[in-house]
Design a protein around this nucleic acid. Sequence first.
DNA 1: GCTAACACGTGACAC
DNA 2: TGTGTCACGTGTTAG
Lengths: 237, 237
Amino acid sequence: MHQPENHDLYRFLTGNGVFNVGPYGFPEVNSCELAGMPSFCSSSSYYPLEVSGLADTPPQDRALMALKNHKEAEKRRRERINSHLDKLRSLLPCNSKTDKASLLAKVVQRVKELKEQTSEITELEALPSETDEITVLSGDYTSDGRLIFKASLCCEDRTDLMPDLIEILKSLHLKTLKAEMATLGGRIRNVLIVAADKDHSIESVHFLQNALKSLLERSSSSDRSKRRRILDRKMVM
Amino acid sequence: MHQPENHDLYRFLTGNGVFNVGPYGFPEVNSCELAGMPSFCSSSSYYPLEVSGLADTPPQDRALMALKNHKEAEKRRRERINSHLDKLRSLLPCNSKTDKASLLAKVVQRVKELKEQTSEITELEALPSETDEITVLSGDYTSDGRLIFKASLCCEDRTDLMPDLIEILKSLHLKTLKAEMATLGGRIRNVLIVAADKDHSIESVHFLQNALKSLLERSSSSDRSKRRRILDRKMVM
DNA sequence: GCTAACACGTGACAC
DNA sequence: TGTGTCACGTGTTAG
């Protein structure tokens, strides 16, 4: 449908069919050489008979100017996009050489994860459910590079649950950043935000998961607690 | 440094200087027309004397094939990136026509926000500080499109704080999804996750902020509460 | 040599 | 009108 007019225009203006194209750092040379620089515009030898008036700029120059603007606008657009990508690179746990697609994949995953960890902790999710549940999510990193997990445990309440839970966290060298609990009808839900040691990898989620699983099995075999219920810590307004 | 060899190659192969280039949906036509299709390869009239052997593919065809692969790989790369961008578009509160740069800006902001809302709620932040503080962040959306805020209030504890707070939330038609509190040395920190009504915009943060500010001023004028301290709800393990 | 990733310049299109 | 955004094909470079 369309022809490479500009290539032909280039050839025409530069006077030969061979012109530079391509390598990085080149555009400056290109724009100086071909488009819109004063020295070039003033010596518009292609329009020697141009009367000076409104149309001080012959069509070719106008076209070249437009092309130059276009080129530079596109460059600015690319830079804007890439700067945002760089910001994301610095925000996520990834080095500066991860490619765009992988970076964006990580971003998608991260946004999904964080979505789960915040807004989707609705009332329904925060209150204990009827079924036993264990979920362990790998989350963010602390400022000093330790991985953060969010662990959620929902089960029948019993006397030794907390001491057992504390013991597990201690044995796995997990530091509790934040802990919430809610009880309802003899059942309890614990949500823990814990930070792993520096030497822990993302694989530690499995250890934590298994430990919680064993905790839950112990729980189901023991008889129900007779101790006073933990005060319901879910505020209802 | 380099010349547009491929343009010249195109001209040579197509037999004229005019060739299609550009519009959307075109690559299929292009690749059929120029590169690597069986019909084209078999009738390699440029190499009529080519002996059939290892080099069944003359240099031109090889070059074209490489170019075709390159073109298609680049297309796949673009598609991969754009599909991730589309996923992000669907994940964030923005329509499908927001441009890439703005989308990525939103993503950066969102990742930062969510980072704040999760991992950076460390023990230090969750416990009451010595200075009075109000922060209101606009956050996610509920599944039915209501905006979610996270409000954090840290001040001197007093008897009527909670009723006043509840009154504020009620008057602003904010529904409490989740609420945490922690007390320490007579001071209290409340962190609320609230959902706005459907007709609320992001501007509602200001109303909430101002209401909390007035609450805090009321608090500073009243004398310190004599009532029994709220049990410290921050678990320390 | 080839694969993957990038920046660039360009035509098309929307407002 | 121009101004901005997009997809595309290409040249280039690293592993």
